[in-house]
């Protein structure tokens, strides 16, 4: 190990010992746009609770759950994530029941519990990109939504309107035919469940 690296590591360890709270807050730098699987605790609690066993990914029938290497920092190593553009969550809630630690809180696969307890993020429509807002009737996102008419509604020319109950599963972003996609999930890493 080079001396500089050694010093940096030593300093880091010292700081961590002196100010554990500061280190806990600093180590999560949101740089990537990813979702945690449904039912996940708020990000800091989530990282402390997950044991990186990978069972959420192993039960996912849609193979949307992937695992971080070093892309999101050391603390996220081997933790599960979802990139909605690659593969959205179908809200089967199997991962929440497979999680042994409660890092993903168990949620029943029914409309009520899903709306109340899942907060992966929220869809947002970019009206400058959306075909329906440009006068070309589309409506694909509306038809892909598993919570149709609850989380998303369409108006004139199939223009999508995202509603409050949207849980951020990402199926709309996955299905959007516009490039770059006009509807995207804004991740909610606070995940405060009302």
């Amino acid at each position: 190990m080079k001396r500089r690296e050694f010093c940096r590591t030593a300093a880091g360890t010292g700081l961590a010992a002196l100010f554990p709270g500061a280190v806990r807050a600093a180590r999560h730098r949101p740089s990537l746009r990813f979702l945690r699987p449904p039912g996940a605790l708020p990000e800091d609690e989530y990282l402390a609770t997950c044991i990186r066993c990978g069972q959420c990914g192993e039960v996912c029938p849609n193979r949307c759950i992937k695992f971080f290497r070093f892309e999101n920092g050391l603390a996220s190593l081997d933790t599960p994530y979802i990139i909605p553009r690659e593969q959205g969550c179908i809200l089967c809630m199997k991962c929440t029941q497979a999680c042994p630690t409660g890092a993903l809180q168990p949620v029943e696969a029914q409309l009520g519990p899903i709306i109340n307890r899942v907060r992966m993020g929220k869809a947002r429509v970019d009206e400058n990109l959306c075909l329906s807002y440009q006068g070309k009737t589309c409506g694909v996102c509306y038809r892909a939504c598993p919570l149709q008419d609850v989380a998303i509604r369409v108006g004139r020319l199939e223009q999508p309107h995202v509603l409050e109950p949207c849980v951020g599963c990402g199926l709309c972003e996955r299905s959007c035919i516009q490039i770059p996609q006009a509807i995207r999930i804004i991740p909610d890493h606070e995940r405060r469940i009302a």
């Binding site: 961590a16 010992a17 554990p20 280190v23 806990r24 180590r27 800091d44 990282l47 402390a48 997950c50 044991i51 990186r52 066993c53 990978g54 990914g57 192993e58 193979r63 992937k66 695992f67 050391l74 603390a75 190593l77 081997d78």
Partner: peptide, 27 residues
Amino acid sequence: MVTGTAVFAAVYPPAIIGREIYYAVAV
């Protein structure tokens, strides 16, 4: 305790092996 991350998962061979086999096959 200090970092709030279960570090054993990253350095414990049986945990690593199960995970890595899964990555290699399915991911």
